[in-house]
Amino acid sequence: MNEVLKCTGLTKKYGKLVALDNIDLSVNKGQIIGLLGPNGSGKTTLIKLIAGLLKQNSGELTVDGKKIGIETKGIVSYLPERTYIPNWMRVKDIIKMFEDFYKDFNLEKAKTMLDNLGIQFNQRIKAMSKGTKEKLQLILVMSREAQLYLLDEPIAGVDPAARDYILRTIITNYNPEAAVIISTHLIQDIETVLDDVIMIHNGSLKIHKTVDEIREETGKSVDELFREVFRC
């Protein structure tokens, strides 16, 4: 089965507010997908649902054919917007924790990436800058041989050099058999690495096409199309 993610009639409400409205979506393995949309469009809600942090009001959601639960959490590697590594830990503690809980964690890969960044195993998280913490978090997430990577705004609020590092890390380290969903509104920076584009607006799916289809059908880049679709 090539399909790694499937949503059917997926709806999520916060009280009366409809965050996701009847989303039908299918994502195949081996793709890098840009999840695009303005702020408040429902990108993070969709990612949180897939990661198992939220529960839908209605509709079906499966990862690798399984309903969201412990099994899917074991094959989904999720990078949230927030830095979640406890400050009291050292790098070796969080590495050990990932090794303990995730069967797919590749320690050698993590060591190599940490070495490249000059992060020591004994380093305290508390003493790290916000940027270093974010990079460490990315290293942890990309060191897993997951089936689906969910990266929520990985390049938001970082300098261009860090942006390059993050994108390079994603492209060179993801499991080629897996799919990568990158949520962002900084389209220009990631357009070149994307295979597919999903655009959502006000909780509804607007566009789900390959980058090539967009270019052929509209004669526009993804960034240009985004500006046109979401013009204020």
Binding site: A51, G52, L53, I70, E71, K73, G74, V76, Y78, P80, R82, T83, Y84, I85, P86, F101, Y102
Partner: peptide
Amino acid sequence: KSVFTDEGYLTNTLPVK
């Protein structure tokens, strides 16, 4: 702290019940 704040993103996505 570990379930309902930012650390919750780590705790609640672990493959555990």
